[in-house]
Measured scan of single mutants.
Amino acid sequence: EEWMVEKALMVRTGLGARQIESYRQGAWIEGVHFKRVSPSGESTLRGTTWYNYPEINKFIR
């Protein structure tokens, strides 16, 4: 699984929702560690946020 939603990321990493938000707003790079995608497939600020687990795992190492 490369891309996953927040709940799956929480299960895989043990991070809480606030921790994920903090990383997203600070250290993680949009387009690398996470992306927002609307149902139409376009990038957007209001779409579902998807997280790239392999890239996040590399960051944590």
Rank of each mutant, 00 (worst) to 15 (best):
E30N: 05
E21I: 07
I29V: 11
S22Y: 15
A17D: 05
M4T: 03
M4D: 00
I60V: 06
Y23L: 10
I20C: 02
R36H: 15
A27Y: 11
E6C: 12
V37A: 09
E42M: 08
S22F: 15
I56C: 03
E42F: 07
I20H: 01
R36S: 13
E2R: 07
R36V: 15
G16V: 10
T44Q: 12
V5E: 15
I29A: 05
E30A: 05
G26W: 12
E30C: 04
I29Q: 08
K58F: 07
A27E: 10
F34N: 01
T44M: 11
G16S: 15
E21D: 07
Y53G: 04
R24E: 08
H33E: 02
W3Y: 02
E21G: 05
R36M: 14
L45M: 11
V37K: 06
W50R: 04
V37G: 09
R24V: 15
E42D: 13
Y53T: 02
I60W: 04
R12F: 07
I60E: 03
A27T: 08
G16M: 10
R24G: 03
S22N: 13
E21R: 12
P39A: 13
R46H: 14
Y23V: 02
S40Q: 11
R36L: 15
L15D: 00
T49D: 05
S22L: 14
L9M: 04
R61Q: 14
R18W: 13
Q25W: 06
E2K: 07
P54I: 13
Y51A: 00
S43C: 08
R61S: 12
S40R: 07
E6P: 04
E6R: 10
A17Q: 11
I20A: 01
T48G: 08
R24W: 03
T13N: 01
I29C: 05
S43T: 11
E1D: 12
V32R: 06
N57W: 14
W50G: 01
N52C: 05
Q19L: 07
S22Q: 14
W28G: 00
L45Q: 12
A27M: 09
M10Y: 04
N57T: 14
R18N: 11
T44L: 10
N52D: 02
N52H: 06
K35A: 06
Y23A: 04
F59P: 01
G47E: 14
K35P: 01
R61K: 14
W50K: 04
Y53Q: 03
I56V: 08
F59R: 03
W50I: 13
E2P: 06
P54H: 11
W28L: 02
T48Q: 12
E6M: 15
L15S: 01
K58H: 07
P54G: 08
L45Y: 06
E55C: 05
S38D: 13
M4H: 02
R12H: 09
F34W: 14
T44E: 14
S38M: 11
S43M: 09
R61V: 13
S38G: 13
G47I: 12
Q25T: 12
R12N: 06
G26D: 11
W28T: 00
V37I: 11
E42V: 09
R18S: 13
E6H: 06
N52M: 02
N57V: 15
G14I: 02
K58A: 10
K7S: 15
Y53K: 02
R18F: 10
L9R: 01
G31I: 03
P54N: 10
S43H: 10
G41Y: 07
E30K: 04
H33A: 00
V32T: 06
Q19T: 06
F59V: 04
R24P: 00
S38W: 12
A17F: 08
M10V: 06
V5A: 09
W28H: 01
W50T: 04
T13Y: 03
H33D: 02
Y51V: 00
F34I: 03
K58M: 07
T13K: 01
R18H: 14
R18Y: 10
Q25S: 10
Y53M: 05
A27Q: 11
V5F: 07
G14Y: 03
V5G: 14
W3P: 00
Y23E: 02
Y53H: 04
G31H: 05
V11I: 14
L45G: 14
P54Y: 12
G16D: 15
G31N: 07
Q25N: 14
E42A: 09
R46Y: 13
K7Y: 12
M10D: 02
W3R: 01
G26V: 08
Q19V: 06
T13F: 05
F59E: 03
V32Y: 05
V32C: 04
Y23T: 01
K7V: 09
A8K: 07
H33I: 02
G41C: 07
K35L: 08
V11W: 11
K35W: 05
K7L: 10
I56K: 00
V11F: 11
F59H: 05
G14V: 02
F34V: 03
E1L: 07
G41Q: 09
K35G: 03
R12K: 12
G14E: 03
G16R: 11
E21F: 07
A27C: 13
G14D: 04
Y23I: 02
V32A: 03
S38K: 09
P39Q: 11
K35E: 04
Q25A: 10
G14H: 05
I20V: 06
I20T: 02
L9P: 00
G47P: 13
E55I: 06
Y23M: 08
K35N: 04
G26H: 14
V11K: 13
S43I: 09
I20Y: 01
L15V: 02
K7F: 09
L15R: 00
E6I: 14
P39Y: 10
G47K: 08
M10N: 03
G26I: 08
A8T: 13
W50N: 03
S38C: 10
W3F: 02
L45V: 12
F59I: 05
T13P: 01
T48K: 07
M4V: 13
M4W: 03
S38A: 13
F34Q: 01
T49G: 03
E2F: 08
R24I: 13
S43R: 06
E6G: 06
G16C: 14
Q19H: 05
S38E: 12
E30I: 05
A17S: 11
V5W: 06
M4G: 02
R61M: 15
T13S: 05
I29T: 10
E6K: 14
L15M: 07
G16A: 12
A27H: 09
R36F: 15
W50A: 04
N52Y: 06
P39W: 09
Y23K: 02
K35R: 09
Y53A: 04
V11L: 14
N57M: 15
G47Y: 13
W50M: 13
L45A: 13
